[in-house]
Write a protein that binds this DNA or RNA. Structure first.
Length: 254
DNA sequence: GCCAACGTTGGC
DNA sequence: GCCAACGTTGGC
């Protein structure tokens, strides 16, 4: 059984007069949701070709105060055309998608359970900067740490539907279940830079002298330093002509 | 609100 | 088929 991570936006955002937010609260309430609105070929291909019934899903909060993994879910229906692309009134309308040969696909995902601890992006980045599992997370193995380091989430920020390795899944599940980094990793560290905008962004105020917070800071400084240019071949398809460009978001399916 | 990263488009 | 320009993503 394969494993995946899927992003959604928990904060309200109006597109074409409709709110496209979809939070873990919404998800839990609704139980099962279609995953419409993905307008990126690689993510689409994963949903269309790879995601199978019963596959496990990490539910991720994106574009919000504390981005991170909030819940576990699973695929409850395999791919079918994303019909929202055909409705001109819909936020995710795409004039290039034709019911006769659908361009965009989606799956249904079923809410399983919340993680007691938010496994935030900040925490994951901080852990990924360590060379060994920290002593305050005794359940975290070297393999887990390696799994975290190689997560698409950390290395390919913009892919909204992405594969997750078994060992990374296990690490996330343990972290979300057990926590244990409080007081060690500066989770509130996602706060704004105090003072000037733009230029020299340090981490907000806090005089963090612990090794762990040092890890957080270092991570932030060395962030996505572009680096390797990658060429990504999206198997199977070249699309021509202009399309709706949104690629990551989705709307709530009510 | 800013802006780096990067996916997509389209001119050549 | 390359690559500059463009527009979006999404963390901060």
């Amino acid at each position: 059984m394969a494993k995946w991570l899927m992003k959604a936006e928990p904060d309200p955002r109006i597109v074409k007069g409709k709110d496209v937010k979809f939070s873990v609260d919404d998800f839990e309430k609704i139980g099962v949701s279609s995953w419409e609105g993905v307008r990126n070929f690689e993510a689409r291909n994963i949903m269309r070709d790879k995601m199978k019934l019963g596959d496990k899903v990490l539910f991720y909060h994106s574009s919000c105060k504390s981005p991170g993994i909030t819940a576990l879910a699973e695929v409850s229906k395999e791919s079918y055309p994303d019909y929202t692309a055909w409705d001109p009134k819909h936020p995710y309308f795409d004039a290039k998608s034709d019911p006769e040969s659908p361009k965009w696909y989606m799956v249904d995902v079923k809410f399983n359970r919340r993680l007691p601890f938010l496994v935030s992006l900040v925490v994951l980045r901080a852990l990924a900067s360590l060379s060994a599992p920290p002593s305050y997370l005794p359940y975290l193995t070297e393999n887990h740490l390696a799994g975290i380091k190689s997560m698409n989430l950390l290395n390919r920020g913009r892919l909204s539907v992405q594969p997750v390795e078994d060992v990374a899944w296990e690490a996330i599940e343990l972290l979300g279940e057990k926590g244990g980094w409080e007081g060690h990793l500066d989770v509130k560290g996602s706060k704004k830079t105090v003072g000037k905008k733009g230029s020299d962004s340090r981490e907000g105020g806090a005089e963090n002298h612990s090794m762990d917070n040092e890890a957080v800071r270092r991570t932030k400084e060395s962030k996505n330093t572009g680096g390797q240019k990658r060429k990504r071949i999206i198997e199977g398809e070249e699309e021509s002509g202009r399309t709706v460009r949104r690629s990551t978001r989705r709307k709530q399916g009510i």
